[in-house]
Design a protein around this nucleic acid. Structure first.
Lengths: 181, 181
DNA sequence: CCGCTCATGTAACTGGTTACATGATTTA
DNA sequence: TAAATCATGTAACCAGTTACATGAGCGG
């Protein structure tokens, strides 16, 4: 019901997937992820989980770690319902909009470069993306071995995506070659 | 040299592409774009162009519109150099990282849904993406007719991307069908 | 027992957004 | 001429980041 940011939904999802966990464990999930979309900074996550607790979406349990307090959070029924609502139709149509791609963003302005520099741009990007294919495929394999089938399927999306970008950059290269001839 | 945000680089690119233009024209560029990654809010763009002027990347020319002042900005040589630097190797490798896809983000947590709800999710997303294919292809065609070849090539990237996401969601659908049988 | 990493936070900042105010121009 | 839209901003807010402080446990 209440408005929630995407980060809040994702944290809810992580707490669901992990089971009872601390703020730090949630931070680490972001830190270990190959995406840098969210930094997983403590400054974002610690207050966020306290907020989710106040709204009854997770429940905090006070514990200790040595003499320092340590809080463990578990998903509540209300939290699980919120998570399900986020994943159930109707899905916000904005979710299907074209994603933000920093390479594509640059490509709009390639006209400001000389033809030679444009080709250098395409070469560089091609190399970066070729490397990235390996990264996401490895991540996919990691999930497969971990037996986390839905994460693997999700990561398959990243594989399709990076391959598509690579196909595109090769199309771009071909177009740049043609213009100079 | 100085650090610049991506939005600043993009605005620099827009001023280059459009030639001399007002803050409002830059806002409209964002508003008219099918992507909602940046809102193109006046609150972001107006102060941003003043900042670019202070840094010597654009030059402001005072004008009038009726009795109200109106400022026109043009790209300076320094601004053009900054734009070229942004597009020239070495490119920030983070640009090739997997993009943020709100659908994929959701997909990680599909396990919290019942099998039937998962299939409903996939159906809904498929429909949204099928629609999106048309949107980006139309945009592509618009650029072709406008004779803006680099923007068209950039938008081709969006076409490849949305098609890849569609291929992925169909793969996901197939996997969901198999699990329930 | 020294340094390194794990862990739990807080404080200040920042790059935007939303909402508003208002003048100028066009259109019904 | 009234309403709508174009145009130029400003002010308040906000989600998340960076940087810091500090405690606890562990390996050399």
């Amino acid at each position: 019901m209440a408005e929630a940011t995407v980060l809040e939904q994702v944290v809810l999802g992580i707490v669901w997937k992990r089971g009872p966990c601390t703020s730090y464990a949630v931070c680490k999930e972001f830190l270990d992820s190959p995406s840098s979309h969210w930094s997983g900074s403590a400054g974002a996550v610690y207050p966020l989980l306290r907020r989710l607790d106040q709204r009854g979406l997770v429940r905090a349990t006070a514990g200790r770690r040595g003499h320092r307090p340590s809080t463990t959070y578990v998903l509540t029924a209300k939290g699980r319902a919120a998570l399900r609502r986020w994943l159930s139709p109707p899905i916000d149509p904005a979710a299907a909009e074209t994603t933000y791609d920093p390479i594509r963003t640059r490509a709009y302005f390639l006209g400001v470069l000389t033809a030679a520099k444009r080709r250098a741009f395409a070469e560089e990007i091609e190399a970066l993306l070729e490397h990235q294919v390996g990264v996401v495929e490895a991540e996919c394999e990691r999930y497969r071995r971990a037996g986390d089938e839905f994460s693997r399927l999700a990561m398959r999306g990243a594989v399709h995506e990076v391959r598509a970008r690579l196909t595109w950059i090769r199309e771009l290269k071909a177009a740049l070659k043609k213009e100079s001839s």
